[in-house]
Design a protein around this nucleic acid. Structure first.
Lengths: 141, 141
DNA sequence: TCTCTAAACGTGCATATACACTTAAAAGAT
DNA sequence: ATCTTTTAAGTGTATATGCACGTTTAGAGA
């Protein structure tokens, strides 16, 4: 094992991943801004809309974020009335559910979401898009 | 143009990019923790080390982040004595430079960085790694 | 020189992110 | 039934991120 050189850090996959995410996020955020939604918020609403009511832990799993991050992100959405969070039968759990307002909000944003999605997809190409999705949904424990 | 369906959001590239970045960042952060560095800090130090003293704007360009984000990230590094920020001849500019302490810090972390880098690279495969880098460094203005 | 514009930067604000630690409740063990 | 362990979640703290807005300085033009 030889001493690693600083020069190798030019290939850093963490920087690459973060750079890519920031750039893509900025584009989605800009497209969603007229609807009062951030990328992260859009994702959370979409997940709740598709998966139905879910615990915070499960939701965090779906979005690949930390549980405590999910707690706070849901807090913002709840404050805006886009999501409601209630105790479940198991009193330890908190069930998050999209509200009618939230549903209207995300549906109103859908056309603009699709536009950026398509633009970004074309910009990176099918192969890259496939790779990105594969990385995002690979097991990593 | 037909009405977009909520179901299509399962393919959202923004979620994919953010999921991937979070997962990869967590792995790098864990590996760098013993050295008291976060992924972002490692990247900034590496960039300063390789590119030499640079203005905040240029540095932000290199790392693909917002200028104001760079200002604050450098503040953290400066507070730890890993970076020094000084006025340039052009008094509008602020030149950031890695300190001797900063250089020692990143060099001490290099072996552990290389280890995660390799592990993550193998986990995603060469093709995906190439795609990720291509996305990260593509023009996007 | 005076003025106007453009460039680089800082700050306020809001959100996102996650680790360490704590709390509460359910489930399991004896 | 009581004690212990496991599970779900909240909180404190720190960093990261970027938009809107304001400030300072350099440079260009009159």
């Amino acid at each position: 094992m030889n001493t690693p050189s600083l020069d190798e850090t030019r290939n850093c996959l963490c920087l690459a991943a973060r750079r890519a995410a920031r750039s893509i996020t900025r584009q989605f955020d800009e497209a969603l801004r007229p609807h009062g939604l951030r990328s992260t918020q859009f994702s959370a609403l979409a997940a709740l809309s598709l998966a139905g009511p879910n615990t915070i832990k499960e939701l965090a799993g779906i979005l690949g974020a930390d549980r405590t991050t999910m707690t706070r992100n849901l807090g913002v959405l709840e404050a805006e009335g886009l999501v409601s969070v209630q105790r479940g039968k198991d009193a330890r759990e908190r069930i998050a559910e999209i509200t009618a307002t939230g549903r209207r909000r995300i549906e109103a944003a859908l056309a603009d979401w699709q536009a950026v999605q398509q633009r970004v997809a074309e910009s990176m190409g099918e192969a890259a898009a496939g790779s990105l999705r594969a990385i995002a949904w690979s097991r990593d424990d």
